[in-house]
């Protein structure tokens, strides 16, 4: 039996900010992109909703993969404010 991404993320403790630390600069750029972010992200932060890339920043584990692997550098990427975001118990 395979563990779903929801079940995986459920094991992580987060303290969520109300504001996203990940912002897509220009949705138009995403429209013409193959969007590898939809699959490489280990926390499924990026999904398609009505043709636009939706950012579930609350799931983010702050690995930074999308900052480097976004083909068009179309993500404004910063770390969450101090104390917010992922808080591993084991790591």
């Amino acid at each position: 039996m395979s563990t779903s991404i929801e079940d995986l993320l459920f094991t992580i403790r987060y303290r969520c900010d109300t504001e996203s630390h990940l912002v897509i600069t220009d949705q138009a750029v995403c429209r013409d992109c193959s969007k590898p972010c939809l699959t490489f992200c280990p926390a499924e932060v990026y999904t398609l909703r009505d043709g636009e890339v939706h950012v579930a920043y609350e799931n983010c584990v702050e690995c930074g993969t999308c900052r480097i692997a976004c083909v068009h550098r179309n993500i404004e990427w910063r770390y969450p404010l101090g104390g917010f975001g992922v808080a591993y118990k084991i790591g």
Binding site: D7, I12, P42, V61, Y88, K89, I90, G91
Partner: peptide
């Protein structure tokens, strides 16, 4: 049993 999932570069 799964205790914690994690990811890192």
């Amino acid at each position: 049993e799964l205790k914690e999932y994690a990811a890192h570069l």
